[in-house]
Design a protein around this nucleic acid. Structure first.
Lengths: 210, 210
DNA sequence: GGGGGAAGACTGACCAGTCAGTCTCAAGGG
DNA sequence: CCCTTGAGACTGACTGGTCAGTCTTCCCCC
């Protein structure tokens, strides 16, 4: 909308303030969790004002949701690209794990919000959480099913396997977020990938990848 | 403590009220989560009074903690017994998964509190959470290490494997808690056990157990 | 009649969200 | 050119509701 006034006009300013608010919100939420965070914390951290916050967002809850949605969208996109680029189960799992782990590592605050701090109560929160997970599950399940069809791995409950994988990766990253171990997180890439592959019945042949 | 006055005196009464409060708290917390739950909800649900609640507990937070601690203690105990009773990795994994899954199934409310609603923020909550997980990890890690020593499974990062397993089981139960699938939850027992075993390199030989 | 246990009205801090107003800047008019 | 107007962006003091925790009172058993 109205990109005509961009030159030196309104829009850039608008986006800048909104961005500052979201960035500060990520920081504050990841530090204190949703309920212990106070809108005035975000106001202070962002160097704006309460009015500005409520100019851009309807509610504290909506700030949180926007944060999660925008982050989830980028992760989903990265993941899709990484998986499409890879051929074969091994490469796809490697790509998935690496993408997720690297992304969480690069966006610690957002990772903490999504993996640890996410408020459980409230239908909105809960619904979004389930939806996001389902989306992830679909990606994993897709290539697991293909591997089954190709006879690469035995037939099995691929949906359950996908949930198991998500739980596994989530737990490993959550541990890193709250204890700092292992440092760097990337150490887990190889063993975790091996573990996941072997869980669905793909024995780890030392030089299988690529 | 003070079992001397039990006959027909105070203690039973005392315990009864306290128990009612805790039971109602479990219900309320699992429904709304910690922060959206209001102490008056617990008062109403328990049919007691605010005075009674604050007679037995110092704070809302402490009610929550007591709930989690008492539940965790019983789960830990059951788990310890189940594992000690089993010989060999397969039987131990079976026992662990079955114990956890059955327990969560039998105490849906508490399971939801522990697995889904546990408030992330706040050092107190967080610390206890990490400690409980570490305890669980120790049990799993213990028998994984023994299996490695016995040459049953290849050498590997058993601590990471333990976290992966916990994440996996947690995720499966969490899915059941929020979506109701699968019904009954026990359907996952066999495939989940197989998955976990094979993840650490123990190929599922159809008649391996017992 | 004394004391432990329970009731529930009450208090005060806290905080999400509002609103009346200010500031900035662009456009139109003289 | 300068002045007015108006609209959009932003400010921050304020409000109204909420809720954890307290306090007084009462009851019941000894």
């Amino acid at each position: 909308m109205a990109t005509a006034i961009d030159r030196v006009g309104r829009l850039p300013q608008r986006e800048e303030t909104r961005r500052k608010i979201l960035a500060s919100a990520a920081q504050v939420f990841s530090e204190k969790g949703f309920y212990r965070s106070v809108v005035d914390d975000i106001v202070k951290a962002s160097g704006t004002s309460k009015g500005a916050v409520y100019f851009y967002f309807d509610s504290k809850e909506q700030i949180f949701m926007s944060l999660v949605e925008e982050y989830a969208a980028t992760v989903a996109q990265e993941l899709q690209i990484a998986v499409q680029r890879s051929r074969g189960l091994v490469a796809q799992v490697e790509a998935t794990v690496a993408t997720l782990v690297r992304n969480f590592q690069a966006h610690r605050e957002l990772a903490k919000i999504v993996l640890v701090d996410w408020p459980a109560a409230g239908a909105d929160f809960q619904g979004k959480r389930i939806a996001l997970k389902a989306m992830l599950v679909e990606v994993l399940r897709g290539y697991l099913d293909r591997a089954v069809q190709d006879g690469k791995i035995p037939a099995q409950d691929t949906e359950m396997a996908a949930y198991v994988w998500i739980g596994a990766v989530g737990e490993i990253v959550a541990r890193w977020l709250s204890t700092g171990k292992p440092n760097p997180l990337e150490e887990v890439l190889a063993p975790l990938t091996r573990l996941l592959l072997s869980s669905v019945g793909l024995a780890a042949s030392p030089a299988a990848a690529r």
